[in-house]
Design a protein around this nucleic acid. Sequence first.
DNA 1: CCCTGATTCGC
DNA 2: GCGAATCAGG
Length: 172
Amino acid sequence: MTDAGPSWTKERVELLKRLWSDGRSASQIAAEIGGVSRNAVIGKVHRLGLAGRVAKGNGTAPAGSRRPRTEAETLLPVVEVPSVIAPEPPALAVVQATPPVATVALPESARVTIMELRDFMCRWPMGDPSTPDFRFCGDRAITGLPYCAHHSRIAYQPAAERKRDRKVIGFR
DNA sequence: CCCTGATTCGC
DNA sequence: GCGAATCAGG
């Protein structure tokens, strides 16, 4: 049949709904449905009032959404940090200004956010700096060094020690 | 530069 | 209602 105009038939709309709620991106859906552009998909999604989905199971990230974040939504939830014993500051620790840092809230993993990081804490980065779960090691740093004993060994390993770690791979 | 969704506006 | 063009952002 000469169906030059694909348009949004019942089937296509349902497929669209299914895929969209399934978390597929507009471009993926467009490719799957065929005959429509991602803009067409997005446009339809809005007309159907489906915008602002929640799911994003697969590698589809809802990147670059407008900015639906209202002030209320943006308010940080007050998180109760289980107060763990703070690492003991080195000899010449905080001498002034800083109010009595009696209790420094630390995650059990001993990892800290940049806000929780103190002078005497290990600054070894852990995780992806571009993600919210980025942390610093936070263990007690060796006095005079930015890292704890463990990470200092990694950071300052002598050249002689490093070279033997070489592996013979990808060589043919 | 790749990608994402959101919005606009002529059709 | 439709969707290309454009916008805004990761």
